[in-house]
């Protein structure tokens, strides 16, 4: 538990929990689907912050960013969270706590592979005694994803007892979702997805839909409006 308790009224994950869609659970995958630029990274960072502030350890993996840039994401969104809670004075103490529980791991170029991810997590556990409960996987090139690849990544997170949140970019043009399926390219591996959300940009806000929970396909508007920059729940959200 965080030493400095802050009320996470604006965390989308808290609202999902309230609405009967808690996190995916160990060894399972939650997928965030959105078109380019709608704010997948910010959403993942919100999920990360929520877990960190409730005392969990988080491994944030990026395939295209730098440690510095990911850190800035966390710092900026945390500040925004604290500003709206009028608790800015806790910023430095919270940042310190967050840093102890978070590890950012990035890959440059084409260095990523499931085996390498496994080795990296094992090294963190064996040398640093760092065992994440939540693993976030960002900037994955969705075009190259297959059900087999997802299965192997899920096997890795299961081995370490963590839950996996992953962002996946959907196409602006080309084939769109067929009824009862996730939008492409996620339809290629939808059986592997335990929980799926879609971020839909609308009137300078972002709406959150649940597309899949467990084995059930849905298209449920959660009536949650998110700020497009931070993906935090906008104050006074619509119902």
């Amino acid at each position: 538990m965080s030493e400095v308790m802050i009320n996470l009224r604006r965390s989308p994950r808290k609202l999902l929990e309230r609405d009967g869609h808690p996190g995916p659970g160990p060894g399972q995958l939650a997928l965030i689907l959105a078109r380019a630029g709608v704010g997948k990274t910010a959403f993942l960072v919100d999920v990360g912050l929520d877990a960190l502030l409730s005392g969990q350890k988080v491994l944030h993996v990026s395939l295209d960013s730098t440690v510095e840039r990911v850190r800035t994401w966390y710092d900026d969104i945390l500040m925004e969270m604290l500003r709206s809670e009028k608790k800015l004075e806790h910023a430095s103490a919270l940042e310190l706590e967050i840093e102890k529980r978070r590890h950012i791991h990035t890959y440059v170029g084409h260095s990523f592979s499931t085996e390498r991810l496994r080795d990296a997590i094992a090294l963190l556990r064996d040398v640093m005694h760092f065992e994440p409960a939540v693993i976030l996987l960002d900037d994955v090139n969705a075009d190259t994803l297959t059900a087999e690849k997802i299965e192997s990544v899920k096997a890795v997170v299961e081995e370490f007892g963590a839950e996996l949140w992953m962002a996946c970019q959907t196409f602006r043009e080309g084939p769109q979702a067929e009824a009862g399926h996730l939008p492409p390219p996620a339809d290629q591996f939808e059986d592997q997805v335990d929980l799926a959300f879609q971020l839909i940009s609308q009137d300078r806000k972002v709406r959150l839909h649940v597309l899949k929970d467990g084995s059930e396909m849905l298209d449920e508007d959660l009536h949650i409006l998110l700020d497009p920059k931070t993906q935090l729940v906008t104050v006074g959200y619509s119902t």
């Binding site: 850190r71 102890k100 590890h103 990035t106 170029g109 260095s111 990296a120």
Partner: peptide
């Protein structure tokens, strides 16, 4: 770690 370091992150590059 031996030096009270707080590891912030790591990067694999080839």
């Amino acid at each position: 770690m031996q030096r009270r370091g707080n590891v912030l992150g790591s990067t694999e590059d080839g």
